[in-house]
Write a protein that binds this DNA or RNA. Structure first.
Lengths: 139, 139
DNA sequence: CCTTGACCTTCCAGTCATTGGAAGCCTTAT
DNA sequence: ATAAGGCTTCCAATGACTGGAAGGTCAAGG
């Protein structure tokens, strides 16, 4: 199997496979006499594992850990679970951050007429730093 | 006002102010005889605007548009609203993506015993590509 | 007057996970 | 023989910063 075949079989771009090899995420593939990389089905399985993990948003660093655990017969499921839950915590933090942004902007956009006039609460918020909301009376 | 003062006043790092200038997000500041950048309060206002917009997750590209609209007296609020809603749409798309990841992983982690044994549904999912979920019977 | 320390300047490099391109070699088919 | 397509390496770019090195400038204190 050449790198192109492995790419098709795993769903990971050939370019990306080389990159993963270069950063040490996957071990260096074998080579033909001409220098072409050669892949076995077990190496394709690793690539598929990596791809699925990326799809779930794991960082390369954590995927390295997961691959290590995957190939370690004496692993404990607790280790795997901890890595996964650490990632979930990061995802939730990011979601909360984006949620706050979206809610604020949605609120502002709702208050904006969206017509041909220049007056706009969105710009007013950006101008004032969002410190004083239009709905809260001054103390 | 030197760049350090402007940084304190705006909340934007001096290094970042230079970066914003280098990419053309803000116009080049005036200079003293010695070459130090000089800022007026109106320039600090622009920096604050940019900072607030970044806090809301706007890209530099969109902030450029927003600053332009902000300083355009003949703008229509509709234009501003469209930029904001485009961004909200992107935020929501990203949130949905992260939500899906988090939910999948939370589900898998829940199914994982998290003890000293090696058996782990999380690794099984990564291995199999998440294609066949444990709870769905085969057709 | 000189030094110290805090500022300012520019430029270069690295982050993260890719993606793109250029230049050149190898294999297969016509 | 040649053309197409795949493979190789290396370099550069993405977005939005952040860090550091090397050197110039300014105000205060000895």
């Amino acid at each position: 199997m050449t790198i192109g075949d492995a790419a098709k079989a795993s769903g990971v771009n050939a370019k990306l496979i080389r990159y993963y090899e270069s950063i040490g995420l996957i071990p260096a593939a074998g080579r033909t006499a001409a220098g072409y990389r050669v892949y076995s089905s077990s190496e394709v399985n690793v690539l598929r594992f990596v791809k699925r993990a990326r799809t779930l948003g794991f960082s390369i660093e954590r995927i390295q850990i997961l691959v290590g655990l995957w190939q370690d017969r004496s692993r404990s499921s607790a280790e795997v679970k901890r890595v996964a839950l650490d990632h979930v915590a990061e995802l939730e933090a990011k979601i909360a951050e984006l949620r706050a942004m979206s809610d604020t902007l949605t609120h502002l956009a709702h208050a904006c007429h969206g017509d041909e006039r220049p007056d706009c609460p969105i710009l007013r918020d950006l101008e004032e730093g969002g410190g004083n909301c239009c709905h809260e009376p001054p103390p």
